[in-house]
Simulated assay, not measured.
Amino acid sequence: MSQLRSVRVQVYGIVQGVGFRYYTQQEASRLGLCGRATNLSDGSVEVIAQGQAEAIEKLIHWLKSGPRTASVDEIEVTELAAGSVSASAFRAY
């Protein structure tokens, strides 16, 4: 049985103004995750996600390339305390 995992992923590259948050919300919802995707002032996108460890791993893999409209240069994954994300559904801000 998979365990709960929470992560913060910062995604760098051409990831704003290309629908990145919308597509991330679609992918995360498909995987049954909760959390959010937010544009940051430095041009990156911050993704906070929580769910089954296997689904989180799939999201991280997807974020390495993102939607075809984006150009991802790099991602940074930071583990968060399991259960620390309180959102009931994944949202894009």
Results as ranks from 00 to 15, higher is better:
G51H: 08
A28V: 15
G19K: 07
Q26H: 05
A70W: 01
A82L: 06
L40P: 04
Q52N: 13
I60K: 04
A49C: 03
R21P: 14
T78L: 12
S84N: 05
I56N: 13
W62S: 03
L63M: 04
P67C: 03
I48P: 07
E27C: 14
C34F: 14
A49R: 03
G32Q: 10
A81Q: 11
V45S: 01
T78D: 06
R68F: 01
K64E: 11
R36N: 00
A82K: 07
F90H: 05
I75W: 14
Y22V: 14
Q25M: 14
A81R: 13
G35V: 09
I56L: 12
L63Y: 00
W62M: 02
G66K: 03
A28S: 12
A53Q: 11
G35T: 08
E54V: 14
W62E: 01
Q26S: 08
S71N: 06
C34K: 15
D42H: 01
G43D: 03
E76T: 13
P67T: 04
S71L: 13
A28R: 12
E74H: 09
E79W: 09
S65E: 01
G32D: 10
F20W: 13
G19V: 11
S29Q: 15
A49H: 07
S44G: 12
E74V: 08
V72W: 07
T24C: 15
E27A: 11
W62C: 12
I75R: 11
A70C: 02
L59P: 14
G43W: 02
Q50E: 10
W62R: 04
R91F: 02
H61E: 10
E76Q: 15
R30F: 08
E76M: 12
V85L: 01
S88T: 02
N39I: 06
I60P: 05
G35P: 02
G83N: 11
D42M: 01
E76I: 15
V45W: 02
L31W: 11
D73N: 08
A92R: 09
I56M: 07
A82I: 04
E54T: 09
L40C: 01
A49W: 00
A92F: 00
A89C: 02
Y93A: 15
S84W: 02
S65M: 10
A87D: 04
R91Q: 07
A82N: 08
